Amino acid sequence: MPGVLTPDQTKQESPVAPSPKGTSLRARTSAMTKEHLRPTTLFLLVGGVVFLLDTAMYNLLVFWSPSQGWGAGLMHGNPLTAKLLTIAVASCLTYLGNRLWTFSDRPRPDTRRSIMLFILLNLIAAGLQLCCLAFSRYVLGLDSVLADNISGTLIGQIVSTSFRYVTYGRLVFPKR
């Protein structure tokens, strides 16, 4: 009968166009994972090593005295200065680790521009980390090894590392 379609004809006459590759949720998720897994893992590895170094240096400066051992260290009364010193050393190592390893596949931008942005972003990140330590020390009045390591090292590091990860990949080591 004209005008009446069988089920087989319906399927043939109105085919569903296959979706372009990469538009499905699974394909987009897979592509994002491939794109971000390696740099994120390497960024966290570099950060982890530098975190351990930063923590050790801070604790030695603030809580260890060469003459008296553990307790009140040489810079116990100046924790923000001690943290600033350890952040400066850690930042240099972080730049090298991220430039040479994490983002090594990206083109090298103008080194002067890259370093200036890195310094600016690290000053902001250091400020975030120092705020966490200062709040604990001067607002809450906590000055123990545990309090300093939780506020300045752990919480401060989480906040500053999150900021660094977002900004380094976009501004310091851009894809193009």
Results as ranks from 00 to 15, higher is better:
134 A>S: 11
51 F>D: 05
140 L>M: 11
149 N>P: 00
173 F>H: 02
10 T>V: 10
100 L>T: 01
56 A>Q: 07
4 V>S: 09
42 L>E: 15
95 Y>D: 02
105 D>E: 15
163 F>Q: 06
90 A>S: 15
103 F>V: 03
156 G>M: 07
119 I>L: 09
75 M>E: 01
156 G>R: 10
128 L>E: 15
65 S>F: 05
120 L>H: 03
132 C>F: 08
40 T>M: 09
130 L>K: 05
157 Q>L: 12
14 S>G: 07
25 L>W: 14
53 L>Y: 13
81 T>H: 11
43 F>Q: 06
127 G>Q: 04
134 A>W: 15
142 L>Y: 14
144 S>V: 02
117 L>A: 01
71 G>W: 00
31 A>Q: 14
95 Y>I: 00
32 M>G: 13
120 L>N: 01
166 V>H: 12
161 T>V: 05
147 A>Q: 02
149 N>Q: 00
137 R>G: 04
121 L>Y: 14
81 T>S: 13
128 L>I: 10
39 P>F: 06
157 Q>I: 01
60 L>P: 06
100 L>R: 14
113 R>W: 07
102 T>A: 01
30 S>W: 13
142 L>S: 07
73 G>M: 04
48 G>M: 07
170 R>M: 04
128 L>Y: 11
17 A>L: 13
14 S>K: 14
62 V>T: 10
176 R>H: 12
175 K>S: 15
169 G>A: 08
46 V>C: 14
25 L>P: 03
165 Y>Q: 05
24 S>G: 13
72 A>V: 02
115 I>Y: 03
124 I>N: 07
99 R>K: 10
144 S>L: 01
107 P>M: 07
108 R>Q: 15
36 H>G: 00
117 L>G: 01
124 I>S: 12
10 T>G: 09
39 P>Y: 05
30 S>G: 15
59 N>M: 08
16 V>S: 13
5 L>I: 04
60 L>V: 08
166 V>T: 09
56 A>N: 12
112 R>E: 01
65 S>G: 04
141 G>L: 03
81 T>R: 13
11 K>W: 09
49 V>Q: 00
168 Y>T: 00
19 S>A: 15
64 W>I: 05
145 V>I: 09
173 F>L: 01
150 I>T: 10
39 P>S: 05
161 T>A: 14
149 N>F: 01
64 W>A: 11
111 T>D: 03
12 Q>T: 07
58 Y>H: 14
165 Y>D: 07
84 L>M: 11
111 T>V: 09
4 V>R: 10
28 R>E: 12
82 A>G: 09
140 L>V: 07
81 T>M: 14
173 F>S: 02
138 Y>M: 02
73 G>Y: 04
22 G>L: 06
162 S>L: 12
139 V>G: 05
165 Y>M: 03
16 V>F: 12
12 Q>M: 03
133 L>G: 09
33 T>N: 11
149 N>R: 00
49 V>P: 00
160 S>E: 08
165 Y>N: 05
173 F>W: 07
4 V>E: 15
20 P>L: 10
29 T>L: 12
33 T>I: 12
3 G>F: 13
100 L>F: 10
155 I>E: 11
89 V>K: 09
163 F>K: 02
129 Q>M: 04
57 M>N: 11
1 M>L: 07
58 Y>T: 06
70 W>C: 01
117 L>V: 00
130 L>W: 08
122 N>V: 04
68 Q>M: 02
43 F>N: 03
61 L>T: 06
126 A>E: 14
99 R>I: 00
